[in-house]
Design a protein around this nucleic acid. Structure first.
Lengths: 163, 163
DNA sequence: TTGAAAGTGTAGCCTAGGCTACATTCCGTG
DNA sequence: CACGGAATGTAGCCTAGGCTACACTTTCAA
């Protein structure tokens, strides 16, 4: 392929499929773009998911979730934590009154539960495959936000059929 | 501080990790913070890794990597792509001259190779577990940036022992 | 050869998510 | 009961990563 310098050459290689009038995008190209887009939006909500899960943990553990504790656990400054909590409130996931700690709305609790289940599942899968506990826990933190429901279901099946 | 009404009971009860009270500052808390921090930095470089891999692909396919093609594949505007390419150049991963396409430096090529191998491995693992091809490809895009070397090695072993 | 289309680059704006510095509130003790 | 330290909140700044709008090259085709 490779016409030469900056030349457009007919079809960008691997194609085989005709291009629709959609600006000339090949299906494979669009699929790839879609994947990247999905990855981006998953990243967007990753931090919020982590906060919600953590708040739920703190509430369960000690009955309260304070900005400073959250900040310490997440490893950011308290100012950052407070700002993120504000976003959580804006999105209807949490509530709080000045100097009174943070609580989850029903929506927030539901999200926390989903996140917790997913986290567990990812960690268990990594363990089942043979990843050492510490690495499993660490990697799961980043991985979990990018596992689709379909894949999650497969994970469950895999874990069941496995002794 | 802290031992006020808003106290955080001695040990964070429910945590999955057994953590031996190694003195001072609740190691589990610090470990968690460290994990979150690692996740954050992985995210930071994720976009750049994707670009490098994509540029390598385009160069291999057609001998050139143009901002517009990159933008289309990633699913962002060309302006965004150009800005990211600038960051790539700043970081010593790529080179380019106005209107002449983008190329990788040796460092960029090395990174691309590493990323490609890792991507392959993640996709293969997902497939081996039973994830449908489409979901595997889509999820891998987000997951791969969060898989540690240790975990990657385990993936390799798992794939080898598996027919 | 020239002009329009396509690609490239620049400027300016936005949000998320970090930070530090400073101001304010709370609350256990002295 | 007042005070000081910790927690909380606010303001302002920064980078990454998006976008649109506009300006400028390059290339191709008439």
């Amino acid at each position: 392929m490779a016409k030469t310098t900056l030349k457009r050459a007919g079809a960008p290689a691997g194609a085989g499929a005709p291009m629709s009038a959609t600006g000339g995008k090949l299906p494979a190209e669009r699929a790839q773009a879609r994947r990247f887009g999905k990855t981006r939006s998953a990243q967007s909500s990753a931090v919020l998911e982590d906060y919600v899960e953590l708040i739920a943990d703190l509430l369960a553990e000690s009955g309260e979730a304070r900005p400073t504790d959250i900040a310490r656990r997440v490893g950011v400054s308290h100012a950052t934590a407070i700002k993120t909590i504000a976003r959580l409130k804006r999105d209807g996931m949490a509530t709080s009154k000045p100097y009174r700690g943070v609580f989850l709305t029903p929506a927030g609790e539901a999200l926390a539960e989903r996140v917790r289940v997913r986290h567990r599942l990812v960690v268990d899968l990594l363990l089942a495959i043979g990843v050492p506990a510490e690495a499993a826990e660490a990697d799961a933190e980043g991985i979990e936000h990018h596992v689709s429901d379909a894949t999650l279901k497969v994970f469950t099946q895999f874990l069941q059929q496995k002794p």
